[in-house]
Design a protein around this nucleic acid. Structure first.
Length: 940
RNA sequence: GCCGGGAUGAUGGAAUCGGCAGACAUGAAUGCCUCAAAAGCAUUUGCCCGAAAGGGCGUGCGGGUUCGAGUCCCGCUCCCGGCACCA
């Protein structure tokens, strides 16, 4: 399908063919570029343009989730959303708004680096080549982007500001009392003045410089932590929790991932848990996406309770403090820090053999269990989730509410990273605890009365408290409130809230990412580079790859590419106290970093003083009403970013908001999830993929030649041999046809299969539009100034009205269907009235901008239609002169009547009854229902 | 397991507020044009009965509410997505 769709013979010379479409498209793309047609004026700075027709008009900030420029280029699925936003933007521009729409590139990332590793070619070279290819492909589609605003996250002038934002985050802390981030200098001032006490109570002045720095570093929103991280030897890097699949492997490459304690950069996103949750209510996002974020944040409220032991108190978190009287044992995560201190030399008197795991001493038992638990991969843990394992540590805790002696276990069903890494086990009300209690033969005390006839195990439903002393008889909510009151007044605990959300692991052992603007001095503590030293450019290295290991080698340790350039790593700098030797951070930032803030750089991409001028940020992103959070007006992209990218970007935006750098609380006011274009792939009997375009269907079966092949449905991909590119479609039909097809094949949010043979429908439609205006044989205009007949005129205005409604609601498929109806209404006419031709061209322009511009010009207009007014329906022509009512008798349509539009209900009723008189056969209807302008229903 | 979304002709989809199910398009069939084919154009096209007029059935399945249900309610089935020992 790389040839044009028709052979050259016998085609009328002025028909709208792919060849003509290609000429028109190239010409208009060039004009738009030359004229800067899609430049959106800023209120301030170098991109301000007071002469622009939309200067300071009502704005619309449109965004696509920017792509990673892969070497394979775009296939027909990629631009679906891009075309959708372009159609919407062009419509809104014609409707009077100042539309900001551009496209950038999320260009740091693994493939360029891996390609570099294989070929020795610098990642920047491949990345820039790929970006160039993407730009060409996007240009070919006629997207109305403001090219001046296009950025790539790998541009030094872009990542300079990524590093700057990192420094803002590093240099701030979260003031939980104020509920916002504040500059770190204010924290230091509080310590220095004594307003805030130090952790160990000593005066600030008594602390050494290193001690002070250590304390402050623990408050920072970007901090270094020696914590269990996901180490992936096969990739040679650590990964964020979110980059790991459900079965415990790397999302990229599908390698095993191990928990290892390593020093890594973290972002304190958990400090924002409450606000990230609460502010979802301010956003116009799909409810399922909000729900996914809510679940990801996982807020649960309950209480922290302390259980004394001889080695110190075990602090647990529970959502069911009301069941405290039912606690019969305690469980700590195997890694819990208190475990070692609690272990006695020997098993206590009367320890059951089953609790010891067959070991002679508690220490041996704990060590063996830890080894067992650490050796399990996450896959195994999932698979064995039902069979509870654990071991008694040989110590007891005391239940604060009744003094009961509770044996303490370690078990891997308690996770070190959630809550406090310890639980009180209440088997009567918790299924997991019940399962564990069954294995270890532990007692069960029910503290909620199950309903009559309940024969299950743990009871988690509602009911009155029992066996619970002063709580007896209260329902769960009342009991919770009472016990929290009791815990707080007796000093045994407090009401508390926890989150499933963890802090964000922010460093990667890669080359192709933003370097951290951080150095270390002889103390080993981090020091921020001053702003003037930005950008910190990526150094050249001999080898771009991190050291990778046997994927199963859990004991290996990361080695970063940057660490190999010793000249770069070891530097002498003057950071204000004279030249000194420092060591640079050699990790790089994760790929998410650039996409956390690019919506801001689009606003003011050439600004060298700041990431975006405040006036521009306020105009494009600022809140529109007192309760509005602000943000881009429409952000279109796939659901796969529902949690990670969108949560991270919201987090960074909120930090910048707290520090006063932006006026908007949220980056994306409205989110829209586009569907995917999927494709069929075919395998031959050996299971090998065969080229999809060679497969034909016969009687519901599929053949390549004489061989029957098997059909699968899924992604488009090179290895599946089913890729169709926009380049092929543009060559065969033209970009306008391709755009119309993508927009007409279904609603934007729905995934659907690609079907090349159906594209011809959109091609025929554009040919009919063209033929309605241009004589195919002479090339002359077929448009006349004579007025349209009444029927055509009414059709036109009904279509205008419908199309506007559809465009506003992003229902492009039904808008196009209406335009086709209007066009089909013109094909019988001997000439096309101008009063219909012009609105049709204008309404077509968002979808097929090139051919629309061409026709607009041939209709005698010198200027681009990009800023022409979108047609408005005449309300007088929307009112029908007569209405046809279907008449139902007992729910079935038995006739229809045409009555004048202004007929009274009684007249309609009378006409309807007359129309179905034969059905009535003289009987009197029991009831007659007249729905104005809709139908008549007769009940016998 | 829990949570979310979905199921309409051969196919993609339309029906926006409970009011004529199948807009628009693909495919298929027939015709026009052509020496022929392609392209283009025109007509038909949910299923069943019928020569036709006409009738019956029909929105995953089973019930319900209603004059009237693709749309609302109850109970299922299947498909897709998210989370998954989160205390």
């Amino acid at each position: 399908m790389t040839e044009t769709a028709e052979t050259t013979a016998d085609i009328p010379p002025f028909r709208y063919t792919a060849t003509l479409a290609g000429e028109i498209e190239a010409r208009w793309q060039q004009r738009w570029d030359e004229r800067g047609t899609f430049h959106a004026p800023n209120p301030a700075g170098p991109l301000a343009d007071p002469a622009h027709p939309r200067f300071n008009a009502e704005k619309l900030y449109l965004m696509d989730m920017f792509p990673y420029p892969s070497g394979a280029g775009l296939h027909v699925g990629h631009p679906l959303g891009f075309i959708g936003t372009d159609c919407f933007g062009r419509y809104q521009r014609m409707a009077g708004r100042n539309v900001l729409h551009t496209m950038g590139f999320d260009s740091f990332g693994l493939p360029a680096e891996q390609y570099a590793v294989q070929t020795g070619q610098h990642p920047r070279t491949t990345t820039e080549q790929n970006i160039e290819r993407y730009r060409q492909q996007l240009r070919m589609l006629g997207l109305g982007h403001d090219q001046r605003r296009s950025v790539a996250t790998t541009d030094v002038e872009f990542y300079r500001w990524t590093q700057w934002i990192f420094l803002q985050i590093f240099n701030s802390w979260y003031d939980t009392d104020a509920g916002r981030a504040r500059p770190i200098a204010e924290l230091i001032a509080e310590f220095a003045s004594g307003q805030r006490g130090t952790p160990d109570g000593r005066a600030w002045a008594e602390l050494s410089e290193v001690e002070r720095r250590g304390i402050v570093d623990d408050y920072r929103l970007a901090y270094i932590s020696e914590a269990p991280v996901n180490w992936c030897p096969g990739l040679g890097t650590v990964l964020a929790n979110e980059e790991i699949t459900a079965d415990g492997r790397s999302e990229r490459g599908n390698f095993p991932v191990f928990k290892r304690n390593l020093r890594q950069w973290m972002m304190r996103i958990t400090a924002y848990g409450d606000r990230l949750l609460a502010d979802l209510d301010l956003l116009d996002w799909p409810e399922p996406i909000k729900l996914m974020q809510r679940n990801w944040i996982g807020r649960s409220s309950g209480a922290h309770i302390s259980f004394p032991t001889e080695a110190g108190a075990i602090r647990v978190f529970t959502t069911r403090p009301d069941t405290l009287f039912g606690a019969t044992y305690m469980v700590l995560a195997p890694e819990h820090e208190l475990v070692d201190a609690m272990i006695p030399a020997a098993w206590p008197e009367g320890t059951r053999p089953a609790w010891t795991g067959g070991h002679a001493t508690p220490r041996e038992a704990v060590e063996a269990y830890r080894k067992f638990a650490a050796g399990k991969t996450d896959v195994e843990r999932q698979a064995e989730a039902k069979e509870k394992t654990g071991v008694f540590v040989g110590a007891f805790a005391t239940n604060p509410v009744n003094g009961a002696r509770l044996p303490v276990f370690i078990a891997d069903y308690v996770l070190a990273g959630y809550g406090t890494g310890a639980i009180m086990a209440v088997p009567g009300q918790d299924e997991r605890d019940w399962a564990f209690a069954e294995v270890f033969d532990l007692p069960v005390i029910r503290t909620v009365q199950p309903p009559e006839g309940f024969d299950g195990k743990a009871y988690t439903g509602e009911g009155p408290a029992v066996n619970s002393g002063f709580l007896d008889g209260l329902d769960i909510a009342e009991a919770k409130a009472r016990i929290i009151e009791w815990l707080e007044s007796n000093g045994h605990g407090t009401g508390a809230v926890t989150y499933r959300l963890r802090d964000w692991l922010f460093s990667r052992q890669r080359y192709w990412g933003e370097p951290f603007p951080i150095v270390y001095d002889s103390t080993g503590l981090p020091i921020a580079l001053p702003e003037e030293m930005l950008p910190l450019e990526l150094p050249e290295v001999a080898d771009f790859s991190p050291k990778t290991f046997d994927p199963e080698d859990a004991d290996s340790s990361p080695e970063t590419p940057l660490s190999r350039n010793r000249e770069w790593v070891e530097v002498e700098l003057d950071l204000g106290d004279g030249p000194k030797r420092y060591t640079r951070e050699t990790n790089t930032m994760p790929q998410w970093a650039g996409s956390c803030w690019y919506e801001l750089r689009y606003l003011d991409p050439t600004n060298a003083q700041t990431f975006a001028d405040r006036a521009n940020e306020e105009y494009w992103l600022g809140p529109r009403t007192p309760t509005d959070a602000g943000g881009a007006d429409l952000y279109v992209g796939g659901v796969e970013h529902a949690v990670l990218h969108l949560l991270y970007a919201r987090f960074w935006h909120k930090v910048l908001y707290d520090l006063g750098h932006v006026s908007s609380k949220e980056p994306f006011r409205r989110l829209f999830n586009q569907g995917y274009i999927q494709a069929y792939a075919y395998t031959d009997p050996r299971g090998a993929y065969v080229p999809a375009e060679e497969v034909v269907e016969r009687d519901g079966r599929f053949f390549r030649g004489e061989t029957e092949v098997n059909r699968e449905y899924g992604k488009m991909g090179k290895s599946l041999r089913n890729v169709v590119t926009p380049d092929e479609m543009c060559a065969a039909y033209g970009a306008d046809t391709f755009r119309v097809y993508e927009m007409s094949m279904g609603p934007l949010e729905v995934s659907r299969p690609w079907e090349t043979r159906a594209v011809v429908g959109s091609y025929r439609f554009l040919q009919r539009v063209w033929r309605a205006m241009i004589d195919e044989h002479t090339g002359e205009l077929r448009v006349v100034d004579a007025p349209a007949d009444e029927k055509t005129r009414r059709l036109l205005h009904r279509v205008i009205d419908g199309v506007r409604g559809d465009m506003d609601a992003l229902r492009f498929n039904t808008a196009i269907a209406k335009l086709i109806e209007l066009t089909n209404g013109l094909t019988q006419l001997s000439a096309t009235p101008r009063e219909v031709a012009e609105p049709l061209v204008l309404m077509l322009a968002p979808f097929a901008p090139h051919v629309a511009e061409e026709l607009w010009q041939r209709l005698g207009h010198a200027d681009s239609l990009a800023y022409a007014d979108f047609p408005v329906a005449d309300p007088a022509l929307l009112r029908a002169e007569s209405v046809t009512y279907p008449v139902q008798v007992n729910g079935k349509v038995r006739g229809r009547v045409e009555v004048p539009a202004d007929a009274t209900e009684a007249q309609v009723r009378e006409a309807a009854l007359a129309a179905v008189a034969d059905q009535l056969a003289g009987r009197d209807p029991r009831k007659v229902i007249v729905i104005p302008a809709r139908m008549v229903s007769v009940v016998l």
